[in-house]
Design a protein around this nucleic acid. Structure first.
Lengths: 257, 257
DNA sequence: AATTTATTGCGTAAAATTTACAGAATCAAA
DNA sequence: TTTGATTCTGTAAATTTTACGCAATAAATT
């Protein structure tokens, strides 16, 4: 969606290709260097920050739509993308007034345009290493930021509620679903996955007990290689046991920290 | 929605009052006498069984809509109603062919009618004592049944998947959220809540250890009354400590069985 | 080549929790 | 008063979790 014609077509005829009333919004949690951040984008015409999102095309499934939208906004694919809740209590998303106010928008919008209707938003989350993400702008967004989880500003619509629920869900899910597949390199060390869990849970986990619990799940395979980390003992590399990982995704796991 | 005029108006003009594309479906899990059942309804025009559901009105929130729909279908209100997942991979809900085939329907349906569009369905579940529920029919449904969880027939759309996910969610949530407020009488005995948990989890819980764990949550209050149960020792009555129960709902609990 | 420094990796004792189970108390009907 | 079925409490054993000391290792420095 780059040319003027495409944008105009999206505004006037988008409702033929996308489902009205429904959006998908993504709470993309970024993790790096013991910090948790969330990806916020600035809406061109509303002059406020919110979560990246988009509409669902007529012929794609919800997961396909979520993956496509995430791909468009972050250039990332094949992420650990999880639906977590559907929000529908924010009755007005865009108003004609806000739209008309903004000079950057290309065409005036008809009063009964589909983009001005109430929307229900399906929330998805992903956890990514924010050092590896590159954001590509979109007609609706012109800026983005990785915002510290602790100090989130007031967001548009009900996006504050969505962020809160996303983080809450992740912290709960970490006990029941194997998390980490897309956050770490294919091969990683125990200390690496250790700080990942510490960061997400926001608390310290005993360095010596953590490997025992994690290994007892049977989803990790110890490799015969080590990583060189300078003048220190070389930690062994691990990778996820694909088969058991998939099984654990389906059936759930039980962890206690 | 009883008179012919009302039905016709719903079909032709419903899209002005309800959100297109979106429905709420309810997996109503019924519990009684150590059995788990699910409420199924038969769709008039599709000749198949599915979950009761309905559309969202323009000016009501999702929870309001879910409660209204549940009220309409079961005459129950103020239930422990929880959103659990949103489904959108079943592309066709109704077809004009199916509609036209059914003689009981009152009017022919236009090809581009809103009821024939793809729908996204927000799933809610409730757990109720099925002995206390009375079902009131609707234009779309003419029969209902309480179906044993173990032997669910093939359902319409993606409702089999919804039922499966609902039960899975309930079993997971029972460890993290206090369940029981709407299932038991206001005052209940330990054995009563004990079999409730056993039924939902589908396994036996030690009769002597169960009370210890449950009481340690601090959401139950022992009363100074007893229930008379015939020629046996009278069990004490308990009730939920409203304040702590609400707190536990918000913050979650941790149980291990 | 030995020493130093920072980190990984393992084992084990102590503490806490969970599980298993026995027996006393209670109620109402016979 | 006896009987039968059920509630309720306590406690020892088993298991799990937690805490933590120390050996092993890697490379840079002496």
């Amino acid at each position: 969606m780059k040319t003027e014609e495409e944008v105009e077509d999206f505004i006037l005829n988008g409702h033929k290709h996308y489902l009205r009333h429904i959006t998908i919004d993504c709470a993309i949690i970024g993790y790096h260097d013991q910090q948790l951040k969330i990806l916020l984008v600035k809406w061109k015409h509303l002059n406020g920050w919110g979560l990246p999102g988009g509409f669902i095309m007529n012929e794609e499934t919800l997961n396909e739509a979520a993956n496509r939208i995430l791909m468009e906004k972050t250039s990332l694919s094949d992420l650990f993308l999880q639906q977590f809740y559907t929000f529908g209590d924010s009755f007005f998303r865009l108003s004609k007034k806000d739209w008309d106010k903004d000079q950057r928008l290309l065409i005036p919008i008809p009063e009964d345009n589909w983009l001005l209707e109430r929307t229900i938003s399906i929330g998805y989350y992903a956890v990514v290493d924010f050092e590896k993400v590159s954001i590509s702008p979109d007609i609706f967004y012109d800026e983005y930021q990785w915002c510290d989880i602790q100090s989130i500003p007031e967001l548009l619509f009900d996006h504050n509620e969505m962020v809160e629920k996303a983080i809450q869900t992740i912290r709960l899910q970490i006990y029941h679903q194997p998390i980490g597949y897309n956050l770490l390199s294919e091969k990683f060390t125990l200390p690496e996955i250790h700080v990942l869990y510490e960061t997400i849970l926001g608390k310290q986990l005993d360095r010596r007990n953590f490997p025992k619990k994690l290994m007892s799940l049977g989803i990790l395979k110890k490799l015969d290689e080590q990583r060189s980390i300078g003048p220190h003992r070389s930690p062994f590399l691990y990778e996820f046991d694909k088969e058991n990982y998939e099984k654990a995704l389906m059936e759930g796991i039980a962890l206690a920290f």
